[in-house]
Design a binder for these strands. Structure first.
Lengths: 205, 205
DNA sequence: CATAATTATGAGCAAATACTCAGGTCTTGC
DNA sequence: GCAAGACCTGAGTATTTGCTCATAATTATG
């Protein structure tokens, strides 16, 4: 397939309005197609067709197929980072349970639309170093914040806060991915309640 | 790509010893190649090359590429089912913490070798109805067993045992998949300890 | 209105790859 | 030792698909 991706800028910059519009149409179509067919079967021609443009136009805005999915992933990561930042401002000192609830809600919130695409993003996304760094940065940020929280909160009775923070972040992320994108419809409310309960009782010892 | 898979039996049956040997060599090679390159880039020619046989021989034992991965998945599922069955016999009435530890250890145990392949299996495996049924059956079995355990154990103080059982099974499965196949080496011992602690405190209320 | 710049088109190329088949080699059974 | 069947071979086929490029259409500029 491909692994190079040496051409970063497929063209200089979109300068007209219709150009930016076409770009958006491509990304929207790609989100649908990748979510529907997966990455391998989500062909560029299909994306162009769904976007209502020609295949040539598509390649004027993206250097290759990987770049399209990477762009979608970057957008999702930026959304996640924004939510995480918001949470870190909102979460005033209070019961650890409330903080966890905010945390879990934020995670659920950012995965409600387009769960199928999300799955593709995280499972089959081409692992360009550029994007991987961004993923790692977001995760490290979350883990660091959570660890500081665990260290400073009076309710918390845990020694290995490093491992605990990682476990919590990983658990929330994965469980939500799984259950939101799952075939069997799970009640989101129940899930939230139980997940928060699990985390709370865990850290309170 | 492919989605048919109408030819189930590529040939009647292996009747000589070398035939069965070749079959094994193909599966072993496929496990390596899929684990190394992923499903899409794990070409049948590469598998044949690694197995030291010709591409024609490969297609005498498997009707198509999907079938090879499906066979690997079925084997892993059978292993998992065997371990689960063993656990359900071993786990005598005792502290819930000990039971969870056995549970977690069993899960880790069955994912230690070939973690990369495991990832491919679960993320990119072709979802033939046949295999999906087997996955669902194993999961339902585990959830049912765990729910009965939660319902009957004196230490447990949880009302929604159905959701709890699902949450626990999902969490253990996903966290272990993630951390075992992860790039960053996480201490398995720490992980086991914390995971068991989390589950135990969760169900004890 | 004329010229240049930007954007759009889509037939077709090159490469990759799942899979076939005609014809070999090895094993078995008598 | 000799057929008959089981097993193996690998060059080649058919198809898919990411992507290019020559050309056309549209928009900006002066």
């Amino acid at each position: 397939m491909s692994a190079d991706q040496r051409r970063i800028q497929p063209r200089k910059q979109p300068r007209q309005v219709r150009a930016e519009l076409t770009r958006q149409r491509i990304l929207t179509a790609a989100a649908h197609v990748f979510g529907e067919h997966g990455y391998a079967a989500g062909t560029t021609n299909r994306i162009a067709e769904r976007a209502g443009i020609s295949i040539g136009s598509l390649y004027q805005y993206f250097p290759n197929k990987d770049a399209i999915l990477a762009e979608l992933l970057v957008r999702h990561l930026d959304d996640g980072a924004a939510i995480a930042e918001r949470l870190q401002r909102e979460a005033l000192p209070g019961p650890i349970e409330d903080i966890f609830r905010l945390f879990v809600r934020g995670a659920i919130e950012s995965h409600l639309d387009e769960p199928r695409l999300l799955r593709v993003l995280l499972e089959q996304a081409p692992k360009s170093t550029d994007v991987l760094v961004k993923v790692e940065r977001l995760k490290t940020n979350l883990v660091g914040y959570l660890r500081a929280l665990l260290d400073g909160h009076p309710e918390v009775r845990i020694t290995d806060t490093e491992t605990a923070a990682r476990l919590i972040v990983t658990t929330v992320e994965l469980v939500i991915h799984q259950l939101v994108a799952d075939h069997e419809p799970v009640d989101i409310g129940c899930l939230e309640t139980e997940l928060v309960a699990m985390l709370t009782r865990y850290v309170r010892g």
